[in-house]
Every structure is written in structure tokens, then in C-alpha cells.
Design a protein around this nucleic acid. Structure first.
Length: 601
DNA sequence: TTAGGGTTAG
């Protein structure tokens, strides 16, 4: 009774005073500890009962396995598994077997969890849900959805708990269509009526898939909503950069009488950061300080530092960080990012020094940021020091993005030979580091070298991606390789299955535009299969018309673009220049007056 | 006795 009420001291005292103790006594205490999240104490009790010569029964095992899961005590869990097998309990007691699946899943040993499930003579929705939850929890959404299919194939009906994990899986991989399907199924089964958690998970799924109007609609129509449902929506808006919407929801939520939790406040701070709403952020900061939440919550402290950083108030961020009761490497990284973004590489390195003196070890994120700072200001020496440190820590071996950042740093500093050397010496080759190198050559106008890299990477068996072709086309433009560009544009789809996007069309058009082949540039623009955000492409064509003095194509392009978007004033400027350069002052003046009228409207 | 919703740095 005492254990169940969470009165552990009293429960323990009663147990200690008992003249005779048995498995049931101990199990009750262990159950209490486990239930209230005191996993370490639960595991200690197991050792103590063994010292008294008592042997755990299936019930005891169930509780301690749960404790192993919450503390990620995989080794201990494995030993218990062995014991259970030795005692012949495995496969006899489905509840116990499910606890094993769950223990492995929670410890991240997902293949072990799956193995246990597959060996079971019979399994139920809990066995499957445990495994699915494990995969969904670490972001392996595809795998989780696949297991969900398999479960249904065995004729097992999902429960609300299963759906929670499946929705999480959809959210983690942005599987909107699948998520919608699940939502429909849940609604059809009437499960949303009295399950706030499930409703929140649906809101979260839509929000994480970027379908915010739908997320909002679901929240509005929920029979019951709580702080979690609101937080999911606010977090969704914040992540999509829709800070105003997030803050509006935050207001509405409070009007409905829900008090924010630390998690809500983290999301709201993120929202403030996306729209640089430093005043609002400061108000939240005051609320947090008043409630004393920073004492216990590092995440909130980090979010606060991140908010000031994103608002550009980096000095303030530093001040806040220094005053935090608990700091961690994330807040330091946020600060270093802040200085980097302001172009203050010196300050960024000072922070590195500071954090190391405080005993924090820099992570890949720290190095990524410092490399960016060096690249931005061309500090190749500093960059080389960072590179050496990364090698010393052995981080280049398994982090392709860090390798890419090293290459990018050297390339941006103009040390292209060094960049090439790094790529050649990488133990794990990945397309992103080649992309950084090719981009570097393209940026410096060394088109031939860029194409040479492209050949080398393919010779090594690395497949190009969409980004590779962006830089390849750009490289062709810098040296006027028209035929090559056309060929690459065709083969990226035919040979590599990469559908060209707007950026590819823009660079192809630019190749022709730069070379004066305006007829070909026009053909490119006519072939673009999308209609949104085309103004930059039209501007590029007009620029080319200006460069080559082609009034006719210019006039045609000008009319087309005016039908698309009359508010874009830059095209009037260019058209005016084209007329003026051709000596057509009257037409030039006409365009300018159109522009004036337009800006009045 | 078994599965469970919202959060930070690039």
C-alpha cells in the first residue's frame, strides 16, 4: 500500500521490520519504485532480495525489466533475459516476454527486441507495439511503419497506444499521406472521442509533416484538448518559421485557461527566435525566471540562449548563458553559432576557449560552426587548427557533414588544392564532400577543375545528387561550356534519375544567357514545369538581354513576367536599362512611369 | 504485472 502511494521510506521501513519477507513483499516494493520512476532503487532491491536467498518470480522480472528499460541498463537486462531463459519462463508467459521486447527496445537494442518478438510462439498487440514504439522513438519511421503493416498482416488490431507510436513514426519521416490514412482510421473507430493523448499525437503528426492548417483544424475540432495538444501545434508553427501564428496560438491557449509547461515555453522561445521577437522573448524570459524553471531544466536554458542568438542579441545570449545554473554544450554551441553568424570569428573562438575551460568538450556541431566562421572570413590558419583538432578526436571518420564543412572551409578560403587533398584522403567518401569541392571550384570560376572532380567522384563509384548538378551547371556557366551543360542537364535525369528543380533550370538558363544564346535561354524558361517563384529566373533572362542588348527578347520577357507578378519592381529597372542602352529613351521613360504607377497601386 | 502524446545547438 505504502509503495503504491509513493511513500517509499515508509514502505521500506515496513519491509525492513518484517520478521519474514518473501518474493511478494519485495516485488511490491520494486513495483512501487518502478512505477514512480525510481529505477535504480528498484534494481538495488532485486540485488538485496537475492542476498536474502530469494529468487525473483515472473512478476518481479516484469518490474525490474521495466526499470532496466527506463535507465537503459542493457547489460543488466541481458543478464535477466538469460536467467529467464534458463528458468524456462521465456515463451511461457506472454506478459514477461513483452517486457523483454520492451526492455530491449527502450535500450535501443532494436534488433534484439525484434529477435525476441520473432521467437515468440504467440505474440499480441503489446509485443508489436513495444517494438514499433522502439523504432519510432529513435526516428526509424520507415521500419516502424513496416512493422505496423506486418502486425496487421498477422490479423492483430492496433490499439490507441499502437497508433501513438505509428503517428510518431509518420511525423518523424514526414509521411503525410500515411499519417492521414491513420488519422482517418482512428476517427472511423471513434478513438478520438475520449483520448486527448491520441488527439495530440494527430495534431503533432500534421504539424511535423508541415500540414499546419490541417493540424490547426484537428486541434479546433478535438472534443478535448490540453496543454500537450496546444504545445504540439505551437511547436509546429515555430518549426516552420511561422512565429506570429505560434504566438497567436500561445495567447489563445492561455485564454482557454491552459498554463504553459516548460516544453510549451521552449516552443514559444523558438517561435520568438524565428521572427526575431526579442521583446516577447524577454517577457517569456521573465516568466521563466519568476517560476524558477531554469534551476531544473537545461533545455529551457538552452532555448533561451538560442532565442537571444536568433534575435541577433548575442551579447545578451552570452550574459544569460553565463548566469545559467546548469550549462551544457548545446547552449555553448548556440552561442558560438551566434558569433559566427555575426561574422565575429574571434568571439566564436573565445567562446570555444571559455567552454573548454569550463570542462565542456566541443562536439561536431561546435566544429561545424567554427569551420563556417573561418570560411566566412577566410581564416585558413585557424581553420587548419580546427581541422587538426577534428582529426585528433577522430570525428572525420564517421561524420560526412563535418568532412564536408572542412572541405568547404578550405574551398571558401581559396585553398582548393588543400580541399581536394582532404577529399582524396577521406576514409569514408560521401557525395556531400565532393559537392563542397565542386562548389568551391565553380565559385572560383575554375569550371574545368570542377568537371574533373565530377569525373573523379564517379570513377570512385560515388553517385552525384541533385546538388552536385547545381554546381556542375554553375561551373559550366563560368567557362561557357554550353554543350557540356546541355548534356549534364539531360543525363542527370536519364542516367541518374534526378528530376531537375528550379535551381537547375536557372543555372542552365544562365549558361545560355552568359554566352549570348538567348534563343536557347528562352527555350529553357518555356520548358520549366513549375509556375511558382519564377521571378528570379525571369530577372536572369532580362539581365542576359541587357548584357547582349537584345531588346526583342527583353520586351517579350518583360511582358511575360508582368503577367506573373506585377509587384516585382526589379524587372522594370532592368527593362528600363535595356531600352536606354538601345537608345530607346521614349520606351525607357514609359517603363519607368509604369513602375511608378505600379508602386502607387 | 506488459506497449503511451508536446522540447534545445548545425
Amino acid at each position: 500500500m505504502y509503495a503504491k502511494c509513493g511513500a517509499f521510506q515508509k514502505a521500506r521501513q515496513v519491509l525492513d521490520d518484517l520478521p519474514v519477507r518473501d518474493v511478494v513483499t519485495w516485488s511490491s516494493l520494486i513495483a512501487g519504485y518502478t512505477y514512480y520512476g525510481h529505477a535504480t532503487e528498484a534494481l538495488d532491491c532485486l540485488d538485496q532480495m537475492r542476498e536474502e536467498g530469494l529468487s525473483p518470480d515472473p512478476l518481479t522480472y516484469a518490474f525490474v525489466l521495466k526499470a532496466c528499460g527506463t535507465t537503459k541498463a542493457l547489460d543488466k537486462g541481458k543478464r535477466l533475459h538469460d536467467e529467464i531463459v534458463e528458468k524456462g519462463l521465456h515463451g511461457k508467459d506472454l506478459v514477461l516476454s513483452n517486457c523483454l521486447v520492451d526492455m530491449y527496445a527502450k535500450c535501443g537494442a532494436l534488433s534484439a527486441a525484434q529477435e525476441v518478438l520473432e521467437e515468440l510462439p504467440e505474440r499480441d498487440v503489446v509485443s508489436w507495439s513495444s517494438l514499433i514504439s522502439g523504432y519510432a522513438g529513435v526516428g526509424h519511421g520507415e521500419k516502424a511503419l513496416h512493422l505496423f503493416e506486418q502486425m496487421q498482416h498477422e490479423g492483430i488490431l492496433p490499439t490507441s497506444v499502437t497508433y501513438l507510436s505509428v503517428l510518431k513514426a509518420c511525423a518523424s519521416i514526414g509521411a503525410l499521406d500515411k499519417g492521414k490514412e491513420i488519422h482517418d482510421e482512428i476517427a472511423r473507430r471513434g478513438l478520438l472521442v475520449n483520448d486527448v493523448a491520441l488527439g495530440s499525437a494527430v495534431v503533432d503528426m500534421y504539424a511535423k509533416c508541415g500540414a499546419l492548417p490541417k493540424a490547426q483544424q484537428v486541434l479546433d475540432e478535438l472534443p478535448a484538448r490540453n496543454i500537450v495538444s496546444w504545445t504540439a501545434l505551437i511547436g509546429g508553427y515555430a518549426h516552420q518559421g511561422q512565429g506570429e501564428q505560434a504566438l497567436r496560438c500561445f495567447e489563445q491557449m492561455q485564454c482557454e485557461g491552459h498554463s504553459p509547461t516548460a516544453v510549451t515555453l521552449v516552443c514559444v522561445l523558438t517561435a520568438c527566435g524565428t521572427i526575431a521577437a526579442v521583446d516577447q522573448g524577454e517577457r517569456i524570459h521573465n516568466v521563466i525566471a519568476r517560476l524558477g524553471l531554469l534551476e531544473t531544466n537545461t533545455l529551457l536554458g538552452n532555448a533561451l540562449v538560442g532565442m537571444y542568438v536568433k534575435c541577433g542579441a548575442v551579447a545578451k545570449a552570452q550574459q544569460v548563458l553565463e548566469g545559467l545554473p546548469v550549462q551544457d554544450v548545446v547552449s555553448w554551441n548556440a552561442l558560438i553559432t551566434g558569433w559566427m553568424q555575426l561574422g565575429e570569428a574571434e568571439q566564436a573562438f573565445k567562446c570555444l576557449d571559455h567552454m573548454q575551460r569550463k570542462g565542456f568538450t566541443p562536439t561536431s556541431v561546435t566544429f561545424l560552426c567554427l569551420l563556417k566562421a573561418c570560411g566566412n572570413i577566410g581564416a585558413v590558419d585557424k581553420g587548419e587548427q580546427v581541422h587538426d583538432e577534428i582529426i585528433r578526436q577522430g570525428l572525420l571518420e564517421d561524420d560526412a557533414f563535418l568532412a564536408m564543412a572542412v572541405v568547404e572551409m578550405y574551398a571558401k578560403c581559396g585553398a582548393l588544392l588543400k580541399a581536394r587533398q582532404v577529399v582524396d584522403e577521406l576514409s569514408i567518401e560521401h557525395v556531400v564532400s565532393w559537392n563542397a569541392l565542386i562548389a568551391g571550384y565553380a565559385q572560383k570560376g575554375q569550371g574545368e577543375e570542377a568537371l574533373d572532380c565530377f569525373a573523379s567522384m564517379q570513377a570512385k563509384g560515388i553517385l552525384p545528387d541533385a546538388e552536385t548538378f547545381v554546381y556542375i551547371l554553375k561551373a559550366c556557366g563560368t567557362v561557357g561550356l554550353i554543350e557540356n551543360a546541355q548534356e549534364y542537364f539531360v543525363t542527370m535525369k536519364s542516367k541518374f534519375g534526378i528530376k531537375p528543380d528550379l535551381e537547375h533550370y536557372s543555372y542552365l538558363l544562365d549558361v545560355f544567357g552568359r554566352a549570348g544564346h538567348l534563343d536557347k535561354a528562352v527555350k529553357v524558361i518555356q520548358k520549366i514545369p513549375f509556375s511558382d517563384n519564377l521571378s528570379a529566373v525571369w530577372s536572369a533572362l532580362l539581365d542576359a538581354c541587357h548584357k547582349w542588348g537584345d531588346v526583342n527578347v527583353g520586351k517579350w520577357a518583360f511582358e511575360q513576367v508582368r503577367q506573373l507578378d506585377r509587384s516585382d519592381t526589379t524587372v522594370y529597372d532592368i527593362m528600363g536599362k535595356i531600352y536606354a542602352a538601345a537608345g530607346m529613351q521614349h520606351d525607357a521613360e514609359n517603363v519607368r512611369s509604369m513602375q511608378r504607377k505600379n508602386s502607387v497601386v
